[in-house]
């Protein structure tokens, strides 16, 4: 390899994420990561909720009211979807970590199963919640 003289400008870096095709493998990987970060924020809400319950009925009512609001429901729905996505994706990762499921056809089959499973479980959870809430 020819030494680069200091006067010469650096070689360009060929594009990566700017041109690389999003595919089920990379999209579900980043989705698992984003849902994990969302759930970290959801965990903060969980602690606030528990602290409010410990503080007494007034504080608890304030938090319950916030969660029942339009914005609170959107946040809860997002957390539910993030939870089921992270759960299904996490189980897929655990199977991989045991050394199974690496055939390309299985990678794609399990990937679509994660997508379908997390959507279905989110919808089911909210139907159950709405039925019980009334």
């Amino acid at each position: 390899m020819m030494p680069t003289s200091p006067a010469k400008r650096p070689r360009p870096l060929s594009p990566n994420i700017q041109i690389y095709r999003p595919q089920l493998t990379s999209v579900l990987s980043i989705a698992n990561r984003i849902s994990g970060v969302v759930l970290s924020l959801g965990a903060v809400v969980l602690v606030i909720w528990l602290l409010a319950a410990a503080a007494g009925p007034e504080a608890y009512a304030v938090v319950q009211g916030a969660l029942a609001s339009w914005l609170g429901q959107v946040v809860l729905f997002g957390c539910t979807f993030a939870f089921f996505l992270h759960l299904c994706g996490g189980i897929r990762h655990l199977v991989w970590d045991m050394g199974y499921g690496y055939e390309l056809s299985l990678i794609y089959a399990s990937g679509w199963a994660v997508v379908a499973g997390s959507v279905a479980l989110t919808v089911l959870a909210w139907i159950a919640s709405l039925l019980l809430g009334d």
Partner: peptide
């Protein structure tokens, strides 16, 4: 190719020269 390359997106929705050094801009 091993699996069909049909995808919703041709590339991630990021600016063409996202985070690219001045020498690498296309």
């Amino acid at each position: 190719d091993q699996v069909p390359r049909t995808t919703l997106l041709k590339r991630f929705p990021v600016p063409r020269n996202l985070g690219v050094g001045p020498e690498s801009r296309i």
